[in-house]
Nucleic acid binder design. Structure first.
Lengths: 214, 214
DNA sequence: AGCGACATTGACCGCCGGGTCAAGCCGTAG
DNA sequence: CTACGGCTTGACCCGGCGGTCAATGTCGCT
């Protein structure tokens, strides 16, 4: 199944069309979920014939997977971009967390699927792999923070799951309209929360938080 | 649709059979997800004919909803039972959190569906209502904690989402085998984590945590 | 015995939706 | 002009699955 299938050569028009399909699909998935979105719905919304779908994707599942990879990468880039390499680990985590919340909000239509890992068991693999990468990233930072004494001594991986979880959950609650708050405000709140749960002591927590209240 | 349909009178045998179906369904849902579980699979596993399913349930969806309500209630009871009414709010939260983690682990087969709110959009309502109840419970306690000075001053509801989220996520990661740790150890860790993220100051955090390390 | 209510069976129906396909279009390179 | 490969169409196929139903069984009560 992992055959190196000839990646079809696409013209400019082809690339655009494919992107349209991805976009409309993401939108529909967010609206009704993967299982309740018909291929017909996707093509209809894009205003093309059904057969065309299968010109660009092997099948519905394959489109979904592509969507996942794409957005994971974009999120990772956003996180990396938000971190100031001169800052200490805890601060960088705060920055990454805030960026993630904002990013997820901007791409709400997509993440309403992503963060939730087992909407359909068949995707457990892709989705979890993504989370795993994220967790590893954070765990590394936490390890650093523990070494330099800014983060309390606990298993870094365990703490990392908490960070990733918080971001995911808060984003989810925000997206589904149960937390009514401007994104950036929420982002700062989650940042603060995470810092509080990680900081080695009160003084550190306060200083990292204060530095973030621009 | 919310017709007060005559709730069929069940004999002892009937009640048992219905429970069997619920159990097997929960198991299968956990294995493959709701969408990928066929009614036939459920009845086959229970060793009965397909038609019987519709004797006990209106349809697949209705069974699912029943499953949800049932387990929500049981969780709530477990939480309430774990809290020592003489303790302060923060401690009670810690107790509730630990109980939740344990409960979710014991009922893993079911909660692999529950905590994830939008596996299928059609269930958003039931699932969210459940979370909402939970959040409200916790928010009340947090409000109390803020009033008595043990919890830091932030919007109680916002903080409550964090607590509920943490429990859900850690349980999820544990259930899916990515956190390999005895349940009770994990429960204590999550308890500590939550306390750290809520406590008004370091002294309080330490004392509440120490009191919990039996 | 025989009635009525609960319990159980499995063949059957109908539709929905994923995926196929043969044919046609259009721009460009030769 | 023609050939070719990317692009587009929509009718069609077909398997799977949710849900129905008429028949049969099995209690317990009168």
């Amino acid at each position: 199944m992992t055959t190196t299938e000839a990646p079809r050569r696409l013209t400019a028009q082809g690339i655009e069309r494919k992107q349209q399909l991805l976009d409309h699909a993401a939108e529909l998935f967010a609206e009704r979920g993967f299982g309740d979105t018909r291929v017909v719905d996707i093509v209809k919304r894009a205003g093309v014939a059904k057969g065309l779908f299968y010109w660009y994707f092997d099948n519905k599942e394959s489109l979904f997977r592509e969507l996942v990879e794409l957005n994971r990468q974009r999120l990772r880039v956003a996180q990396a971009g938000a971190m100031d390499p001169r800052s200490d680990a805890l601060t960088r985590i705060r920055q990454g967390v805030e960026a993630s919340v904002v990013f997820m909000s901007r791409n709400a239509h997509f993440f309403s699927l992503l963060e939730v890992e087992n909407l359909e068991k068949q995707f457990a693999d892709v989705l979890r792999r993504g989370t795993e990468v994220h967790v590893t990233d954070v765990a590394r930072l936490i390890g650093e923070g523990i070494a330099t004494g800014t983060i309390r001594e606990e298993d870094p991986v365990l703490l990392a799951y908490g960070v990733v979880g918080s971001v995911g959950y808060y984003s989810h609650f925000h997206r589904t309209g149960r937390i009514k708050l401007p994104v950036d405000e929420l982002a700062r709140f989650v940042g603060r929360s995470v810092v509080c749960s990680l900081a080695a002591d009160e003084r550190i927590a306060r200083s990292v938080i204060l530095a973030g209240q621009t």
